[in-house]
Amino acid sequence: MKKQVIIALGREFGSGGHYVGEKIAEYFGITYYDRRILEDIAEEKNIRIEYLEKYDEQRRNVFFSRSVKGYTNSIEEIVAEMQFEFLRKKAASGESFVIVGRCADEVFRGDERLVSFFVLGDLEDRIQRVSKQHNFSREEAAAMIARHDKSRKKYHNRHSEVKWGDSRGYDLCINSTRLGIDKTAKLLEAFIQERTGLEPAKK
């Protein structure tokens, strides 16, 4: 039986983290999860997907939410917990996968199957990528990056003891600007192979 590996990948907005994650999953022939897990949750619980997307990776509003005995009225936190539960179930089923975001580094912290990365990038490089991808002006791209990074940071730090992007919380932090996205993915694949012994998928 193939060894089980859970690869958690945190990322700055526009750093190419998604693409790196997809490349790694393809290389090892394992499942790739990102916000698409919402589709599975929506189907399982019979919820409208747009509703889940609205609250995905968002931080609770401190003045409009309260917790009582582990219960919370914050839909942001409930959607986050649904995703954590989904990931735990997948891990328990023995499946290997790459998961981008969703605080997976925290969900599986201490688990020996976990390999965690954080992909960052130079701001200028990220602005170029985002403006090209979304056909945005430089200012629009910079604003979008700032907004998403702020939201991801708050979301992550709400659920995790380790701060978002703090190198002490990940196996490896890497700046994708230095090597470019493809080579960054290659480097991480080599790291995973060395650390876990996971073999690449046969072509």
Binding site: S67, N73, E81, M82
Partner: peptide
């Protein structure tokens, strides 16, 4: 809080 949480979950 508990009621809305049970429903939302």
């Amino acid at each position: 809080v508990v009621g809305t949480s049970v429903a939302s979950r």
